[in-house]
Amino acid sequence: MAGTIALPQEIMPALQGAVPATIVTCALDGEPNVTTVSQVFSVDQNHVALSFQFFSKTIRNVRENPYVMVQVINPMDFSTWLLELRYDRTETEGPLFDDMDIKLEAIASMTGMSGIFKLRGADVYEVLSVKKAPWRRD
């Protein structure tokens, strides 16, 4: 249920981009897609964001089917977390967009890629569930 699932404090290190995350999306025709993303950003207690830099299969799938599953790893203790998400909106301005944009720019500029890694939008997802491995099957 929206707004009821809160991200625990101990997951935060996993949302710093230290270890790439794995994301699973599904097209409308049911074909799944698994890929990695560099960082899952925390937005607030029950929202996270993904950067939208390139038109990829992930983006296309999410626009068709908002339900997504993400696995992130805490680099401090290597605990694995599984998050069920639902795509909510894409922000192209505002504090969240700026924060992500700046971080992207900082990294890109250090590798001589300024202007190539351009943030098109911050895709905001509602957190539907959070589970820490070893997870139990409900």
């Binding site: 710093q16 981009g17 230290a18 270890v19 790439p20 560099s38 960082q39 680099p75 971080k103 990294i107 890109a108 250090m110 590798t111 890629m113 890694f117």
Partner: peptide, 10 residues
């Protein structure tokens, strides 16, 4: 944070 990994990704 985790700049090494991000730079590696880039």
């Amino acid at each position: 944070a985790a700049m090494a990994a991000q730079m590696g990704y880039v």
